[in-house]
Simulated scan of single mutants.
Amino acid sequence: MSSSDIFFGEILGTAVLILMGAGVVAGVVLRKSKSYGAGWIVIAFGWGLAVMTAVFIAGPLSGAHINPAVTVGIALDSGEWGDVPAYLAGQMLGAMLGATLAWLAYYGHFQAHLHDAEIIAVPEKPAHPGPVETHRPGPVLGVFSTAPEIRRPVQNLTTEIIATAVLVLAVLRIGVNEQLQVTALGGLIVALVVVGLGMSLGGPTGYAINPARDLGPRIVHALLPLPNKGSSDWSYAWIPVAGPLAGAALAAGLHRLLF
Rank of each mutant, 00 (worst) to 15 (best):
M1S: 04
S2L: 14
I6Y: 07
G9I: 04
E10F: 00
L12P: 02
V25W: 04
V25H: 06
G27T: 09
Y36S: 15
G37I: 11
G37R: 07
I43S: 06
A44F: 14
A44G: 09
G46W: 12
V51C: 00
M52K: 08
P60Y: 03
G63M: 01
A64F: 01
G73V: 06
L76Q: 05
L76R: 04
L76P: 02
E80W: 02
L88C: 13
L88R: 10
A89M: 11
G90D: 13
L93D: 09
G94T: 06
A95I: 05
T100C: 10
L101F: 14
L101N: 08
L101S: 08
L104C: 14
H109Q: 04
H113V: 08
H115R: 10
H115S: 14
E118W: 08
I119Y: 02
A121R: 12
A127P: 07
G130Y: 08
E133F: 13
G138K: 06
G142R: 07
S145K: 12
I150E: 13
R152C: 14
L157A: 13
T158P: 04
T159M: 12
I162M: 12
A165Y: 01
V168T: 04
V171K: 03
L172P: 01
R173N: 14
G175I: 00
T183E: 08
L185S: 11
G187F: 04
L188N: 00
A191T: 12
L192V: 15
L192Y: 14
G196Q: 10
L197Y: 02
G198P: 02
G198N: 03
G206K: 00
G206P: 02
G216E: 06
R218K: 09
I219P: 02
L226W: 06
S231R: 11
W234V: 10
I239K: 00
P244S: 08
L245F: 03
A251G: 03
L257R: 02
